[in-house]
Structure formats: C-alpha cells, structure tokens
C-alpha cells in the first residue's frame, strides 16, 4: 500500500500544500488519545482515600471460587450496613489469587479455601495473621441426567467413568487427591480443571460422569447437578481462612469486612449456603 492509498483511507486527498496539515492534526489528536487515559489514570490512582479508622470507600476482596454465592450475599449485607461502601469481589482459584497477591495486586482482603494457600501469602509478608471462618467438605456431583450410574466414591474407579477434579495446586484438587488416597481408590480423572466452578460446569454439561466438588457447590447448583454424599468418616474437610492484606490502602474497612464475615450475621449466610462452622 502506498502513501496515497493510506491517505484515502482517512478521507484525505493528497495535494500539494495541504498534505502536511492533516499530518500534524492527526499527530495532535493521536497524542491526545494516548495521553488522556494516562493522565486520567494518574488522577484516579490518587482518588479519595477514607480517613484512617473510618469505614468508607471501596475494598477489593479476593476470594476462593467456592465462596462465590455466600460472599456475594455477605458483600451486599455489608454494603447495606455501611452506606456508601463498595465491595468489589474477585473470585478464582485460591492459589491463583495468592499468586496475584504476592505479585502486588491491589487487594484489601483475601479469603482462601485452604490454610496452606493462606500460609504461602503469610510467608510472603502480605498478611500478618488469618482467622478461620468456615469449613467445607467434599461431595460427588453427577449430571442431572446421568449417562452412567455413579452412586458411591468407589464407582469413580471404574474405567468407563469420566471424572473431573480441580488441578492439584488448587485446594479442591488437593482435597480430591487426599479423598482418593485415604479411601484407597485409584481414580484417573479425564481433566483437572482450574477451579471448582469449572468442574461443576463440566458436570452440569454432562461432559463428565462425576466431579469432586464442595458440598456447598452442589447446594448452590440448585438441582442442576445431583449430589452424592460422602460418608463423614471417609470425607475430607478443608478450612477457610480470611485476613486483611497488610498494606491495604483501606485497612479499616478491610478489617470491618473480615469482622463482618466472622460475625453472627456473616456466619448465618455461610451456614445457609452449607458451610460448616470452623
């Protein structure tokens, strides 16, 4: 493509004398487009910070995928209790969130699905101390219209049964592996999904015959999957720690949110979602 063709693209006809003007105008507007967001972004970074000790402004909460439903409710209640406060959630695999936090993600509260994950963040100095606020155990999720019958943990060892679990670095994946090993069953999963909600999706779509998820996930799916309970003696329990991030820019609100999760109101929401008391 030659230069006259590119001029036509912008609707300019190249003619002597005027050819330079569109050039500089283009340069100026392009510069404006490039610099405007930089300048605006610079302003936003220094936006209103609440006075120390007050519960105001917005906080970002990184939470394990399995907490999605319960924390959305708790967040809404917390916002209602503190008008003007905004809680922004980022749900994902605990270990992935931990990596983001140690890489400096702007976050105020972290709630993980295992103490091991929280310990890695504590070891990195991002968190001083965490409180345990819930516990969860595992359940087998099967499709609402199963193609192959699965009725117990032992059935998962069948060669024809397609099983999905979380990948092993994620708490639900580690729990699934512990579950298999402590019950001495050999299961070859067809996939190790990135987080527990992805496992649930694969079950819901009927792509796998069974998935190892949390008890709370089956409950939250509201009939979209059929849960097969695992006897308490065979089951694995994972505990959920929560903590404000040490260098949060809104520490008082972060602490208030943690306190709310630990309060009776927060605990009631978690119980209703099927979480166990810590």
């Amino acid at each position: 493509m030659n230069s006259s063709a590119s001029f036509h693209l912008f609707g300019w006809r190249p003619s002597r004398g005027v050819a330079r003007r569109p050039h500089s105008r283009l340069a100026r507007s392009a510069l404006g487009i490039v610099l405007a967001p930089l300048l605006l972004g610079g302003c936003a970074a220094h936006s209103v910070q609440p006075a120390a000790g007050s519960i105001a402004g917005s906080i970002t909460v990184f939470a394990a995928s399995s907490l999605k439903g319960a924390f959305a409710t708790i967040g809404a209640q917390f916002e209602a209790a503190h008008p003007g406060v905004k809680v922004i959630f980022n749900f994902g695999p605990s270990s992935g969130l931990a990596t983001q936090i140690t890489q400096g993600a702007p976050v105020d509260v972290f709630a993980a699905a295992s103490t091991k994950t929280m310990d890695s963040v504590i070891a990195d100095g991002e968190v001083k101390a965490a409180s345990t606020f819930a516990a969860n155990s595992m359940e087998i999720a099967t499709p609402a219209h199963p193609t192959r019958s699965v009725t117990s943990l032992a059935d998962l060892a069948g060669a024809a049964i397609k099983v999905a679990i979380c990948q092993q670095d994620v708490p639900c994946g580690a729990a699934a592996l512990t579950l298999f090993s402590q019950n001495r069953i050999r299961v070859t999963p067809v996939t190790q999904e990135l987080d527990v909600k992805a496992v649930l999706t694969k079950v819901q779509l009927g792509e796998v015959d069974a998935g190892i998820v949390y008890v709370t996930d089956v409950k939250a799916a509201k009939g979209a999957v059929i849960g097969i309970q695992i006897p308490a003696a065979d089951n694995v329990t994972t505990t959920y720690p929560i903590a404000p991030i040490t260098n949060s820019t809104n520490g008082s609100t972060a602490q208030a949110f943690v306190d709310y999760v630990l309060s009776d109101a927060g605990q009631n929401v978690l119980r209703a979602a099927g979480f166990l008391s810590p």
């Binding site: 695999p93 999905a164 990948q167 990135l194």
Partner: peptide, 23 residues
C-alpha cells in the same frame, strides 16, 4: 479439551497452571 498433564495439557495451559503452583 480440559486440562490433564500428558493428555490435553498444552504449554499455555501448563503456564497457567504453573502460575497457581510454582510461578
């Protein structure tokens, strides 16, 4: 295709999973 080491875990998937375990 899901994510299973040795079967469907391609390099980009291994990178992502690695990020959750060993960055």
């Amino acid at each position: 295709a899901g994510n299973l080491p040795g079967v469907t875990q391609t390099l980009p998937l291994a990178v992502y999973v690695g990020l959750e375990g060993d960055p």
